[in-house]
Design a binder for these strands. Structure first.
Lengths: 340, 340
DNA sequence: ACTGGCACTCACTACAGTCGAGTGCTAGCC
DNA sequence: GGCTAGCACTCGACTGTAGTGAGTGCCAGT
């Protein structure tokens, strides 16, 4: 059976009220707080249908209704209106991010800002190495058999690693290698660098082929390892919701999941720039997060994506507001990266 | 009144049992589980004295006894025997830390290891910049008016920051400056660098005095800002203890405190290498942590201290085991830093 | 100085009773 | 046909009472 407009209105009202009050909402309360223009009895009939269709449910017989995951999904897809940020929030975002001095700082501030504005757990992924490109490489001899390689990417991220050399190498050789590497690699995407380095290694005029071989290994580990870093903030916000109703009474599995980087990375699997994706309750693949919802999006200079960010909280969350905030923060962070 | 040996034995038994069972311990249970050689009634008399002296208390009239903060303090100071690590734990520490590739990785692994072994919240401070010394400086021109400064410390930490130059500067000038800075600064403690840089700025033979002035500013921010980084792990362990008895039923303030870097830094205020300090309940200055205990120590190459690490949990924790683990991990991390 | 015995306290559990929010259903109205 | 008013019903939340048992404090006896 198709849901007519009023039933959808009822569903929207239920979601909004439940999110606001955190309590099952009954028919009387509903008509009082929203001008639906019909009596409670009519609303009850509509509710019965909505329940049959799986959009809402009753925690127990003599209680009001609560949205199901499916109900939230419908709400997010078709019923919620975009909630523009308040000027205060907009200002908060600007003020908070403007003072950032380097990439670490941007990410750090962004994650705290998100947590503060949404009052949820915020998660921000550092700009992914693989998706950014090389701006500069520097080789610093630490001893005759040790090199520090420092790589700067176009997103401002700096990675470094110590390399052990198979044989002592002169400072001149290191300088030559630095020059060659920079000529060859600057501007190319990081994922593309290993073959380029391999090419370099074949060039006979570069002394120390052994050293080149090493550079290959090094770059590979640079690209593969340590790959994706992530920070979170606002876990304390979870405790605010520690009621049997949401989070099913146990936030421990959620806290545990939040400590697993692998799990966090999954949150940003399919993010795109500009539009947010919302995963509601069961839609999350990770079992421990089945009682939570995730709002995430991608960010990067322009419309490219070099990382993801988002918030996580009980399914009972203010989706329109969180979506707006997440997108706004992502845009500001992206802008900061371009300025960089 | 002085506490005789048996009363101390009783206190020790109470602490041990309470830590193990998490339940108030009564006189009968006590004589059953520990061979005290006396009857429950006698133990009760001892308990009455201990309670009068403030070492234990009764949650309610008809319940067993629970140690007070003061009781734990006495226990830690005089009653607990050092609990040597099990070979398995020792192996776990080695295996876990050996694979670390760089400083970030060492810290990261250490904090997770600590959380896992102690089943508490683990906190590890990155090697402090101020307390380490300069191994190498590198200036990388990003554009004609922008420099990236990269600093490598003797603990393997790498810091970088972008500097805006007041006027375009040639690559040669940058190279000169790099050389001068390295000559002057390598080997000196970071806290001592600002005056050294000021000296440099006065040397007339360095072209671009403006640039030098900038270097001063830069170094200052490098030293002051971002100063102390800290990571934590194992917050999920807190949820295991979320009972009215410990943590006073609310872990939210604790989670909040754990998000404040300033508060975390205080945990490592007075750490020394080798010996652990224990702050029990009320002894913590931070109000939100009054229901928790902190075991912390310093680490660094040799017997120097470049950072702190420790664990935090409910006052009802296994102090001897945690002290042993914290010290062991600190020693291993210190060793890793010397190898570096 | 220690112990056995005993009266006492009090959290905890189970159970019964009341209250009320909210529902589903039916008869009637527009 | 759709909406509404009225009403009986359900069931969780809360309250009060009684019973149970772990644990204590105290006292008299060894």
């Amino acid at each position: 059976m198709a849901l007519d407009d009023r039933k959808l209105d009822v569903l929207r009202a239920i979601v909004e009220d439940y999110v606001a009050t955190q309590e099952p909402v009954g028919s009387r309360a509903l008509v009082e707080r929203h001008s639906l223009g019909v009596s409670p009895a009519t609303v009850r009939n509509d509710m019965a249908v909505l329940e049959e269709e799986g959009y809402i449910r009753q925690p127990h017989t003599s209680a009001g209704r609560v949205p199901t995951d499916r109900g939230y999904r419908l709400f997010v897809d078709r019923l919620s209106k975009v909630k523009p940020l308040s000027p205060a929030e907009r200002r908060a975002i600007e003020r908070f991010l403007v003072g950032a001095v380097d990439l670490d700082d941007v990410v750090h501030r962004a994650v705290r800002l998100l947590a503060q504005l949404t009052r949820q757990v915020a998660v921000v992924q550092y700009p992914s190495l693989a998706r950014s490109s090389v701006r500069h490489l520097e080789l610093v001899p630490v001893s005759t058999t040790r090199l520090l390689i420092v790589m700067i990417t176009d997103t401002g991220r700096v990675e470094q690693r110590i390399v052990e050399l198979p044989e002592p190498t002169s400072v001149e050789d290191v300088e030559n290698l630095t020059r060659a590497l920079n000529e060859k690699l600057v501007g190319s995407k990081l994922v593309d660098t290993p073959p380029l380095v391999a090419e370099l290694a074949e060039q006979a005029n570069l002394n120390q082929p052994a050293m080149n071989a090493l550079a290959v290994v090094l770059l590979e580990t640079l690209v593969e390892r340590h790959e994706e870093r992530i920070t979170i903030a606002g876990t304390a916000n979870l405790a605010r919701f520690h009621t049997p109703l949401d989070l099913a009474g146990s936030l421990r599995p959620v806290l545990e999941a939040l400590e697993e980087e692998v799990i966090l990375l999954k949150l940003f699997d399919q993010v795109k720039a500009g539009s947010a994706i919302v995963r509601i309750g069961d839609e999350n693949e990770v079992a421990d997060l089945r009682t939570t919802s995730v709002v995430s999006t991608g960010y990067g200079p322009g419309s490219t994506v070099v990382g993801g960010l988002g918030v996580l909280g009980p399914t009972r969350m203010d989706y329109p507001a969180n979506i707006a905030t997440v997108r706004a923060v992502a845009r500001y962070v992206g802008d900061l990266l371009t300025q960089h």
